[in-house]
Design a protein around this nucleic acid. Structure first.
Ligand SMILES: NC(=O)c1ccc[n+]([C@@H]2O[C@H](COP(=O)([O-])OP(=O)(O)OC[C@H]3O[C@@H](n4cnc5c(N)ncnc54)[C@H](O)[C@@H]3O)[C@@H](O)[C@H]2O)c1
Ligand SMILES: NC(=O)c1ccc[n+]([C@@H]2O[C@H](COP(=O)([O-])OP(=O)(O)OC[C@H]3O[C@@H](n4cnc5c(N)ncnc54)[C@H](O)[C@@H]3O)[C@@H](O)[C@H]2O)c1
Lengths: 225, 225
DNA sequence: GAGTTTTTGTGATGAAACGCACAAAAGTGC
DNA sequence: GCACTTTTGTGCGTTTCATCACAAAAACTC
């Protein structure tokens, strides 16, 4: 793989570009400029060009970017033809919504199984996705080559569940609980804290009424966050 | 309001501090150091001290921070005693999960109503929260002094719905749809793109297997914002 | 109460990301 | 095929955020 060090923020924007290019391709558009992308995605055109420049010289001066070529390039780069299987732990309100939302329909990610402690849920299916008891975890991970888990259990059991997941071989966790999880440093954890997102929006609204927009993918979060 | 310019990232971390201080207070802890907070929240202690320093000199050298005092200070600063009413537009899978999750239980934010186009949903209640038709929006906003909306409609109607919301007086939108919304610059929009979050996690996992953790609020950055 | 330890608040430095501005290349029009 | 327009790729200054490192202050110890 010829992927050098791509800045974190760039890696977060690539799926956005990819998604919009799919849309352009679907409506038969042949070419697009950084300015065109900028309008649609509300990202500075220079930032977009810089992002692409990390991947190579993908455009042509005076022309812009060829939609089909760029789309294919990003598909390869993001490995969009390989399907990634994931599991979901905690089939409650939020977990059920995520199971029902079929990521696979529009993306290369598939939730292959749900897990829950509640015996009344075990053995059922949600939109064709089977729900298992926790003690079947290792088995299912091995069968479907799963390394990523979505965590939607109550915060009180989040750490214990994490330990269990790590032990079973999970390497990445998308954590929806408000708990800050401890795990070995080779385990990648992204936090999505919906309560904080809402609180932060309200805070900015109350305190900086007429500020400019700020893109906010999870700083996630955020992170990123 | 004695709030100067607080860095964006700091504003996103304050609710995290607040939440943890509540927990400490509940178990009767009197004092906490930046190192103690750092351990629990996985944020560098210098960053934490710097964050607090924007708000004033809240700690005491050689002692740390008084939990009760700091909690009260943050409560005031974040205006945690004022309840903020919000509405939710699009009572589908995700919308229903959010309605069922009572933000109010642990925070100062209350979803007072849901709205949906689907007549079979209008007139029902979810956990005591009434669901209205879209044409009742202005009325409900005025009644409850609502300025913030959570948007969980299909992406295809997201822009039209946004226009409608802005027109009705909404000033802040927490957008769960993958659409990039256009709105006047005085409207604050935060994006939470769950698909991108998942894709980004997988990307990092595939390409940088043994990297260090990166906080990702939403930014979530958000991050993400 | 003198000496030791703890811990803050912040100056200084570094790292990451953003976006201006422009040369160079390619396309378009006549 | 010449003049003009479009648009990329990137050098570079700016902004934003993270973290080191340390003096100063307060708290403990005995
Ligand atoms: N629902 C939301 O809108 C929302 C919003 C913000 C944050 N969250 C967070 O997301 C998480 C899930 O929220 P929810 O509303 O879906 O809660 P929920 O109670 O509806 O669902 C939790 C599920 O986890 C299962 N569970 C409990 N202990 C378990 C264990 N040890 N192992 C496996 N499964 C277990 C329960 O049986 C239940 O099905 C919580 O941490 C919550 O704080 C949810
Ligand atoms: N469910 C998830 O886990 C998930 C994950 C990622 C992104 N999303 C995004 O969140 C949004 C909602 O997802 P969902 O799974 O809840 O979808 P859904 O189809 O279950 O719910 C959408 C709801 O919006 C209502 N609606 C449709 N048009 C409307 C209009 N013009 N005005 C008012 N209401 C209208 C529908 O009646 C429905 O109740 C989508 O944009 C989706 O892309 C959802």
């Amino acid at each position: 793989m010829a992927d050098q060090k791509i800045p974190q923020v760039t890696a977060k924007r690539l799926p956005l570009y990819y998604r919009y290019l799919e849309k352009l391709h679907a409506i038969g558009k042949q070419r697009v400029s950084s300015a065109g992308l900028a309008d649609a995605l509300q990202i500075d055109p220079a930032t977009i060009r810089r992002d692409f420049s990390y991947l190579g010289e993908l455009g042509k001066k005076g022309y812009g970017y060829n939609v089909t070529y760029l789309l294919q390039f990003l598909r390869d780069f993001l490995k969009q033809d390989e399907v990634t299987n994931v599991v979901l732990i905690g089939v409650g309100n939020l977990g059920t919504a995520l199971l029902r939302y079929n990521f696979y329909r529009s993306h290369n990610t598939k939730i292959v199984a749900g897990f829950d402690q509640d015996v009344s849920k075990v053995g059922t299916e949600i939109d064709g996705i089977p729900i298992f008891a926790m003690d079947r975890l290792s088995e299912v991970l091995a069968l479907h080559h799963v390394e990523v888990a979505i965590l939607t259990v109550p915060a009180s059991v989040a750490q214990a569940t994490t330990n269990f997941l790590v032990n079973a071989g999970i390497r990445g966790i998308l954590n929806f609980t408000p708990a800050r999880l401890n795990a070995p440093s080779n385990i990648r954890i992204h936090h999505i804290d919906l309560t904080v997102e809402l609180q932060t929006l309200i805070y900015f609204l109350k305190n900086f009424p007429a500020e400019e927009d700020v893109n906010d993918f999870t700083l996630n979060s955020d992170g990123d966050d």
